[in-house]
Design a protein around this nucleic acid. Sequence first.
DNA 1: TTGAAAGCGCTAACAA
DNA 2: TTGTTAGCGCTTTCAA
Lengths: 349, 349
Amino acid sequence: MAREPTKPTIYDVAQRSGAAPSTVSSALSGHAKGRRIKPETVARIREAAAELGYAPNLQAQGLRKSRSGLIGMLLPVHDNRFFSSLSQHFASEVRARGLCPVIISTRREPDEEIQSVEDLLAYSIDALLIAGATAPEELSSICRRASLPHVFVDLPSANSPSVVSDNTYGAEQLTTTILDLMPATGNPLRDRIYFLGGNPQFYATSRRVEAFHRVVMDRTSGVSPDQIINCGYVPARAAEELEKLIHTIGGLPAGLFINSIPVLEGALSHLVNLPPDAFAESVIGCYDYDPFGAFLQFPLHMVMQNPRELIGKAFALLDSRTSDPVLEMVKPELISPHTIQRESLGERG
Amino acid sequence: MAREPTKPTIYDVAQRSGAAPSTVSSALSGHAKGRRIKPETVARIREAAAELGYAPNLQAQGLRKSRSGLIGMLLPVHDNRFFSSLSQHFASEVRARGLCPVIISTRREPDEEIQSVEDLLAYSIDALLIAGATAPEELSSICRRASLPHVFVDLPSANSPSVVSDNTYGAEQLTTTILDLMPATGNPLRDRIYFLGGNPQFYATSRRVEAFHRVVMDRTSGVSPDQIINCGYVPARAAEELEKLIHTIGGLPAGLFINSIPVLEGALSHLVNLPPDAFAESVIGCYDYDPFGAFLQFPLHMVMQNPRELIGKAFALLDSRTSDPVLEMVKPELISPHTIQRESLGERG
DNA sequence: TTGAAAGCGCTAACAA
DNA sequence: TTGTTAGCGCTTTCAA
């Protein structure tokens, strides 16, 4: 029963079926019609291939056709609810097309991003999705130079087709909701809405801050710079800043816009120590979604992105073969407090 | 400034540097020493390559060497905290070795698993990690037949090297802790520990149930079958079962062993409606970790797996070039209630 | 110290 | 309807 370790090639199949290698190739890769190969010949070839356990060598095929059947996706990290969800949808779509997904995480390092694109190019990938890139224009120009079909996701490029979450819309929704529900505490410093977290140099944060600023300007007497605390994404740092804020203004603010899950996590590590009634005079929202947000001691408004549609539109752009810098928007959804989403998080153990 | 769309090859570099293609190949792939190429020749070649923006065609290289520089990993899903963490560590390790990771999700479908392995084989991948496979023996035999170095992770194969979480240890720890802390409610049906969730046909669940059973047998008067509720992983189903249990025994059980995050999520959707004092006579634990578990209304004991070490040991096994069915264990860690892990979940926005 | 030549497995003209 | 042939870009003897 021991199989020889060398994999059979079309030559083996040709020999066994009595056909020529090129005939085998055509028959096996579905070009039988175009090449007018006799159905019985095709059958004979198929049979021989099956008997030998033949499978095409995709590297040889790729070399010859100068395409590989690989589709790449770049993302900052795998272990993040949003990006891993993008991965999942990406993978489904790619597999549905009979291709092979190659997902590379680049940790928000511009050098890694560039290196990864060049690596993928060296494998002759057929297309590339770029999610959350920090150096979009550089990547854009590499892809264009190589005439590689590509689409930016979540973070746009000015020079390439892109599909992003509508951060402006989401932030407007969340800010408006918080303002609508905010109670009056009587303390003017607490009776304001604060924005916590993020990095204004990142596209998403800047959109959100802008929308926040605009809505608050519209609806209140103005925005003071200390209402916007862009302290990054490290939980510990967020906890610190929130603690400082609470200390300065003498309590929880009446409105709190938390930017991203890690910031929420940091904030919680402080909030969890407060007495339950501390939350009575506060409305808290988080831009990003986690199912556990529904199970906290206080009501939490959340903004949920739509990874399925982001990926769907990205592939639609690929299919359209545009290389113009169109920008597609996908609206996120505001989730009410204590809303239990019924979908599974994925399974384990 | 427009670059021609055809990528330069070693022949272009050869022409420009005045060397032969084979010399270029050797010089550029670090075999300059072995082939005794004059350093100045190497320099000339390097220069020419840089000027042309030469990058090797990895498909051609792979075809010739019959290895690709690709390393594959199979996992059930991307959008899961545990598996995405495995992905992240896998990707780091692979990139550190100068290779390219290809991560494929197979949704716990045996057919997809097999198809994916065969696809990866067709790309001449150099090695494969298989995480959470449902058809391990079949995959094992495909890999062996192709003499592909491979290691199973999280779910072992009887015929191939494997590294798994020590489910027995973790379940013993969690069960013991719950039993140690369990109060007496006076109601004999409530004064027991219950196991909720999972599928006994899966390796991990079966290990955990077995350990649970053994510890409970040791420490109490016995285990009744209705103490073990293997209701799968769908949150809604878990919620239902928990509700039924509470109804039947007249309150929350004194001890509850929740098996996996989605089950916890389902349980929470019911628990969140109970008054705070309902938890006073219960000790609750979850086999699996989520940082938000630290922020719930009641104390939650959690078991955290160690993806870094799982991947580390998997690569150590690959490096050892064993194909014997050795089984490595990695101990998970019991996390006390309200313990705030300081590491970021990854960043966003 | 270097070059020439063969071939990895496949596909696509072009012939027949 | 099918076979012959010439590469895709690279590495690797072998010969010089």
